[in-house]
Design a protein around this nucleic acid. Structure first.
Length: 511
RNA sequence: GGCCCGUUCGUCUAGGGGUUAGGACAUCAGAUUUUCAUUCUGAGAACAGGGGUUCGAUUCCCCUACGGGCUACCA
C-alpha cells in the first residue's frame, strides 16, 4: 500500500432490491472514511447477474443515498475518470474476459464445461452426513469436465464447438492465505479448503469474485469495506490480486461486523415480523408487489438515521452519542469500529430520532414535516406559522407522523371534544368565567401568551376560581383533549378569532 | 459436517492486568411541569465456562460452550 495514493473507496451494491440498514451503514463508513481522508467515494453497480435484475432497484439506491445525505463523488449518475460504473457496461467494454484468459494462461484458472445437471450430480454423489455441501475443489476437479482433467486437444475441441464453459480459479491445495484486515487484524485461511470459485460465467459475465478484484484495481480503490459475510471468500480475492495485479496494489480490507436482527443476520423479513423498518426507504418488489417499510416513510430524519447507524458498531471513545454527519466526518476512525455483530434495537433507534427531532434545525424539520401535514389536508402555506407550531410540539414527537396528532389542532378545529374530562367538575361559576373570558379576549389588543395568561388569571380570581380549575377546560376547548403544549402558547398561535370561536363552540358541550 | 469471525448489564457499548467495571436505550420508582410529552433524580441489571501466565486476571494465551457468517455459473 503506497501511502501516497489518494484514498478511494467504493460501495458496490447489486440492484436486486431494497437497501437495508447494513448496506447504508457500509455506505456511511465508506463516505466518512473518504471525507476524513480527503478521498473519493465511488458508487459502482454490481449488476453481473442478469437473472436477478430488478427494475427500479438502481434508481432506488440512488434516492436512498440522496435522502441520507451520503452522495457519492462518482457514480453511474455522476461519472468520473474511472467509468463505466455499471459492471454490465464494463463487461460490454470487454474489461473482464482478458483477465480471465490471463489467469488460464498462467495456470491459475481453468475452463470448466460441466453443466448445472452435472454439478448437481456431483454434489449428490459426494454428499454425506459429514459433508453436507460438497464443493468443486481439488478433491473432485479431476473427476469433472474441465481443462485440467481433459487433454489439451479435448479441451480445444469443446472450445471450438462452442460448448458453454465457465472459468474457475484453481485454488492451491496447500497454501495459507493471510492478510491484515483493518478491523480484525491478521486473518488466515487454508486455500485448499475453499472451492474453485467460478470467475467467469457461461454468459461471459464475471462473477463478483473476478469483478470486485478487476474493478477495484481499475478504479484504483485503496480501501475496501464490506460486510463480514464476505470474509470466507476473501482468500479468493487475495489470490486473484496476487495473480493479476500484485499484493502491493491490493486495497486494505475492512470486513464490517454484521447487523443482527432478533435472530441472526438482519433480514427484510424481520421488519414485517417485528414491526420496524429495515430498508432506508419504502421498497416495493415489482414482482411480488410486496412492500418493505423504510426508515424515511416510518418518519425518521436522515440526521437520526445516519447517527444511529454510525453508532451501531462504532463510538468515539467518549460518552457522546449524538453526532451530526459533520461531526462524524471529523471523528470517524476505522480502528474504533467494534468487531462483534450488533443487534439492531428499534427502541434505541426511536430515541435517536426523538433527539434529532428536538435538536435539528427548524428549517430542516419543516422540510420533512410540511409535506406530511399537507397530505393530511392541513394548510401549510404560512411557513412562519408552521415553524412556530413545530417548535411548540417537537418535544413530544418521536416519529415524524406524530406531528399529525400533536400539531393537527393548530390547523383544524378538533373534531371531538373530550367533554368527559371536564364535565364531572364543571360548574356554573366556570361557565360564567368562560363567558367573561370570551368578552375579555374579544376586546384584547395585544394577543400574546403572557398577556392572555394574565387576563385569564385575573378573571379567574374575580370569579373566586383558581387558575388550575379552569385551565384544563380551556385546554380541552382549544385542543379537544388532554394533551399539547402550554395552553396560552396555543391560544397565541391560534389567534384571537379562532380561540374565541373554539371557546364559544365548546362551551355548550360542558353545560 | 467443514472453515472463518465473534462473546462486558435485556440491547448498543466504554474500559483494560490492581476500577465501587462507566455511559446510553429499555424497565421500575420518585420529583417537576395545575394536561400530555419533555426534563431531572434514583434503583435494579454484565465481564459465557474451565484451564493456564501472573503477586494479581474481566483484560494476555489455550480449550470448551454459545452466537453468527460462509460453504451457488447470488451478491
Amino acid at each position: 500500500m503506497t501511502a501516497t495514493r489518494k484514498v478511494r473507496v467504493r460501495f458496490a451494491p447489486s440492484p436486486t432490491g431494497g437497501l437495508h440498514l447494513g448496506g447504508v451503514r457500509t455506505v456511511l463508513y465508506n463516505y466518512l472514511f473518504a471525507r476524513r481522508h480527503g478521498g473519493d467515494f465511488v458508487l459502482r453497480i454490481e449488476d453481473t447477474d442478469q437473472s436477478r435484475y430488478v427494475p427500479g432497484a438502481e434508481e432506488y439506491i440512488f434516492s436512498c443515498l440522496a435522502w441520507a445525505g451520503l452522495e457519492p463523488d462518482e457514480s453511474p449518475l455522476k461519472p468520473g475518470a474511472y467509468g463505466p460504473y455499471r459492471q454490465s457496461e464494463r463487461k460490454a467494454a470487454g474489461l473482464y474476459q482478458q483477465y480471465a484468459d490471463q489467469l488460464v494462461r498462467d495456470g491459475y484458472a481453468y475452463y470448466a464445461f460441466d453443466t448445472p445437471e452435472e454439478l448437481e450430480k456431483m454434489r449428490e454423489q459426494f454428499r454425506t452426513e459429514d459433508n453436507p455441501s460438497p464443493q468443486y475443489d481439488h478433491n473432485v476437479r479431476m473427476e469433472m469436465r474441465n481443462s485440467l482433467s481433459l487433454s489439451l486437444e479435448e479441451t480445444n475441441v469443446l472450445l471450438e464447438k462452442g460448448i458453454p464453459y465457465v472459468v474457475r480459479i484453481r485454488m492451491p491445495e496447500k497454501e495459507t492465505i493471510t492478510f491484515t484486515d483493518m478491523i480484525r487484524g491478521e486473518v488466515s485461511f487454508d486455500a485448499g479448503l475453499s472451492d474453485d470459485k467460478v470467475l467467469l460465467k457461461a454468459d461471459g459475465m464475471p462473477t463478483y469474485h473476478l469483478a470486485v478484484v478487476v474493478d477495484d484495481h481499475l478504479m484504483e480503490i485503496t480501501h475496501a469495506f464490506r460486510g463480514e459475510e464476505w470474509l470466507p471468500s476473501a482468500p479468493v480475492h487475495v489470490l486473484l490480486w496476487k495473480y493479476l495485479f500484485g499484493l502491493d496494489k491490493m486495497p486494505q480490507w475492512a470486513h464490517l461486523p454484521l447487523i443482527l436482527g432478533p435472530q441472526g443476520k438482519l433480514s427484510k423479513r424481520d421488519g414485517a415480523k417485528y414491526g420496524f423498518p429495515v430498508f432506508a426507504m419504502n421498497w416495493t418488489d415489482p414482482r411480488s408487489n410486496e412492500l418493505t417499510e423504510g426508515f424515511r416513510e416510518k418518519g425518521f430524519l436522515p440526521e437520526a438515521f445516519t447517527n444511529l447507524l454510525a453508532m451501531l458498531g462504532w463510538n468515539d471513545g467518549t460518552e457522546q452519542e449524538l453526532f451530526s454527519l459533520e461531526e462524524l466526518t471529523e471523528k470517524f476512525s476505522i480502528d474504533r469500529v467494534h468487531n462483534g455483530g450488533a443487534r439492531f434495537d428499534y427502541e434505541k433507534a426511536k430515541w435517536f430520532n426523538h433527539e434529532w427531532i428536538k435538536r435539528v434545525d427548524i428549517n430542516k424539520l419543516q422540510e420533512a414535516v410540511s409535506p406530511l401535514l399537507a397530505e393530511h389536508g392541513f394548510d401549510v402555506s404560512d411557513q412562519h406559522r408552521v415553524a412556530k407550531v413545530l417548535g411548540l410540539v417537537r418535544d413530544r414527537c418521536t416519529l415524524l407522523p406524530d406531528f399529525i396528532e400533536q400539531a393537527g389542532f393548530f390547523f383544524q378545529r378538533p373534531a371531538n371534544i373530550d367533554a368527559a374530562a371536564v364535565k364531572p367538575k364543571w360548574s356554573e361559576a366556570k361557565n360564567l368565567f368562560f363567558t367573561e373570558l370570551i368578552r375579555n379576549f374579544e376586546l384584547a389588543t395585544l394577543w400574546k401568551a403572557e398577556e392572555l395568561e394574565n387576563n385569564f388569571k385575573e378573571i379567574a380570581a374575580a370569579n373566586q376560581l383558581k387558575p388550575g380549575d379552569v385551565l384544563l377546560p380551556f385546554r380541552v376547548m382549544l385542543v379537544g383533549g388532554k394533551f399539547g403544549p402550554q395552553v396560552f402558547d396555543i391560544a397565541e398561535v391560534l389567534g384571537k378569532e379562532e380561540t374565541v370561536r373554539r371557546i364559544q363552540q365548546a362551551l355548550p358541550l360542558f353545560n
